[in-house]
Amino acid sequence: MIKFHPSNQQLNTFSNGLMAPAESLIISAHCDMCIQCANKVVLYTEAHSETVFDESSQRLDPNLFGTMLSQITSQEIDRGAGSEPKNSTLELDGRKFTLPRSLNRFSESIGNWSHLVGKIWQAPVNIGGDTVANFIFMEKGGGVPEHTHRGTEMTLVVNGEFSDGLADYDSGDFMVMDGKNIHTPLTKSDEGCLVFSIVDAPLHFTSGWARLINPFSHLFFK
């Protein structure tokens, strides 16, 4: 069951179209998995569309719009292109994961899996923009060394369960971490756990051997 949701304010900003694109993507993916938030977004969007379209009751200028209208209506209608995208799957070591619809749109932009330390796998997703997006898979017993965040990290649990010393998370859960949070993600479930994560600045490791990395991290910013 989903326990962690975006805040009403986040859903409202998303609905209004004022959110940064990367953030909007992960909120949108959460709504694919969470009917409760999806319904809220519909309500907020309804309110915003009334306001936005009411404020701007202008005359249609034929110089601006005449050509556009005839261009659009001369397009052939391609029913195939207009239909809902099919759900493809993300694969790792023979395991297959179904992606939320919003992330599925980027299935062509997912890079190769690479193996990190601590039974962690990572596949980058090119979503455009400055924000780095990754699928992270934690095998059973796998985890990320304790860290805090120089920027903001948003995570959506796509499939599985994990804990981070702060709470237990399940499929569909959404969380935001920043410099105020120190956590140690770890999964104990046999199936492992797949998350989608976006970060806008490098992680900052806070304990154990991983701390040694911080002073040298600039060496690898090539």
Binding site: S114, H115, L116, V117, V132, P202, L203, I213, F220, F221
Partner: peptide
Amino acid sequence: DMWPVLCE
């Protein structure tokens, strides 16, 4: 860059 050094 976001996962310095940890990358194998």
